[in-house]
Design a protein around this nucleic acid. Structure first.
Length: 516
DNA sequence: GAGTTTGAAACT
DNA sequence: CAGTTTCAAACTC
């Protein structure tokens, strides 16, 4: 199994030497039982790039750094101390890794590792994606191996599980290219600094090197694309994480991997990344950052499907007969190819940077709305919270800077947002006050006989309740409700407050079964 | 929740 | 490339 991770510092960094307008993307490829099926076409060995490997004692503690140099040593067994080393990139003993379907020198092996987990960087000139490959433990269930692989890379094929055991997790921090460059550039010497901890979790910070050339086929490669899988290679393809998700990852963020294909993550974004990695969620309870799709007829293999269009595998969706998963890899590949045939930039983000003098963000194609006035979410511009631009072909557009309708909508949206925040704050405050009383007034409660709820109506609770009522009154005023309606809303809110107080009082009674 | 509207994607 | 159909999300009731 090969996984790609990527980091995309969209909007964070501009690289003047990059010929493509897109941001730098770093991807991590994790490969089980590496063979050459996915890497069949010729390519050149890339020049050495520096890297950094980080270990950590827990997934959430700040990373400790291992500096990888060209002559780093590679411990054969890291299970005890979690040492990680990356072998010299120019190592003559390392065979060239290539990627099928791409021309010579389009993919370059940067960091072939002699011992597991093999970590390799693959540069895709011109691509915004920056690939790093991790070769995980060979398993007996790997179809590529059992099927008599034609692997010509014995040194990598011999990879043994070291980090990817059940107790070991490897987290890959996803860091903006620029951030990495700030850390990495110092010259790496032969004295690779290896920092170990008593625990095994390890993290890799992948160097994000500049990709100066353009390779059109790969720049249009959709996130989630499986790169050049060989026939019958089973799960040996490359799953590429969708860029949009990684861009949302707060820094630093980590994608945690385990050999058992169970992934523990710390953020919803990471959850999505994890799901995209193997398509096999082990935690249904985890939240997903994107709405689940509801496709019924497209098999989630057309751009109608948001998941597919965003380069993601469907997971926890409500779709019917979904083919957008690793179980239907070949169909998915065909669908991706079909989409790219129709539109080579079909998987590129629709919202990009506009021309000079225009808004920073604009729809790459422009919308084509006719009836919505571009003020409903039907409109892709409006949905993206950007104004329509000169390339839009919409009719009756009201989604422009000076549009009064747009201003009204925005004002209402802002007001609604403020109201929600205020209400939330008021309710939180009320709950907090009541909860506080639960602990402070227990003796009084226990001695108060049947007057329990009244014990809770302290000055603080009364003030919090008034806050709620005032908020309700303001809301009614903002929405220009008639007085009768406003009164009713306020009374209803008062009722809700009372119920909460009584509820907490009842809870206190329950929690205090001896005297209450 | 069912039905309608909408506009992008797909198709011809 | 334009017109039509399909599709799924947004929206309304």
């Amino acid at each position: 199994m090969t996984f790609f991770f990527q980091t995309i510092p969209v909007g964070i960094t501009k690289k003047p030497t990059v010929s493509t307008a897109g941001p730098m993307i770093t991807k991590l490829i994790i490969t089980k039982a590496l063979n050459n099926k996915g890497l069949s076409s010729p390519a050149s060995v890339a020049p050495v790039v520096t890297g950094r490997v980080v270990t950590q004692s827990t997934p959430v503690t700040p990373p400790r750094t291992i500096t990888i140099g060209e002559t780093s040593t590679v411990p054969q067994n890291t299970s005890g101390n979690s040492k990680v080393a990356i072998s010299p990139l120019k190592s003559p003993s390392k065979p060239v890794q290539t990627v099928g379907g791409v021309g010579t020198s389009q993919f370059k092996t940067i960091i072939p590792l002699g011992t597991p987990p093999n970590v390799q960087q693959i540069q895709v000139p011109g691509s915004r994606f920056h690939y790093v490959r991790l070769v995980t433990a060979t398993t007996g269930s790997t179809t590529a191996q059992s099927g008599g692989s034609t692997n010509t890379n014995p040194s990598i094929q011999q990879a043994k599980p070291v980090m990817m055991n059940a107790a070991v997790r490897m987290s890959v921090p996803i860091v903006p290219a620029q951030s990495i460059k700030q850390v990495v550039p110092k010259p790496f010497t032969s004295a690779a600094q290896v920092v170990t901890t008593s625990q095994t979790p390890q993290r890799l910070i992948m160097p994000a090197t500049h990709l100066p050339q353009i390779q059109p086929n790969l720049t249009s490669l959709p996130p989630g694309t499986v790169l050049a899988p060989a026939h019958g290679s089973g799960n040996m393809g490359y799953a590429v994480l969708p860029a949009p998700y990684v861009t949302q990852i707060p820094q630093p963020a980590f994608v945690t991997l385990t050999s058992s294909s169970t992934f523990s993550t710390a953020t919803p974004i990471q959850t999505q990344a994890r799901l995209s990695l193997n398509g096999l969620s082990t935690s249904e309870a985890t939240s997903r950052p994107r709405k689940p799709c509801n496709c019924t007829r497209s098999q989630c293999l057309k751009l109608y499907c948001d998941c597919f269009a965003n380069g993601e595998f469907c997971n926890n969706c409500n779709c019917v007969n979904c083919f957008n998963n690793l179980d239907h890899e070949s169909e998915r590949l065909k669908a991706i190819k079909a989409c790219l045939d129709r539109n080579p930039v079909a998987f590129k983000p629709k919202i990009g940077k506009g021309k000079q003098g225009e808004s920073d963000r604009r729809h790459s194609k422009g919308c084509n709305c006719k009836k919505s006035g571009c003020l409903k979410n039907y409109c892709e511009c409006y949905e993206a919270k950007i104004m329509c631009s000169s390339i839009c072909k919409c009719m009756g557009c009201k989604n422009f800077e000076e549009s009064p309708e747009r201003k009204t909508l925005m004002h209402l949206a802002d007001a609604a947002e403020v109201r929600v925040q205020q209400q939330t704050a008021a309710k939180t405050k009320l709950s907090s006050q009541i909860s506080d009383l639960l602990t402070r007034t227990t003796p009084a409660v226990t001695s108060g006989g049947g007057k329990l709820p009244y014990t809770f109506v302290t000055k603080e609770v009364a003030e919090a309740t008034c806050d709620c009522l005032l908020e309700q009154a303001e809301q009614a005023e903002l929405t220009t409700q008639p007085q009768a309606v406003a009164e009713r809303l306020i009374l209803e809110e008062f009722g809700r407050c009372l119920r909460r107080i009584i509820s907490f009082a009842g809870k206190a009674k329950t929690d205090c079964p001896i005297n209450c």
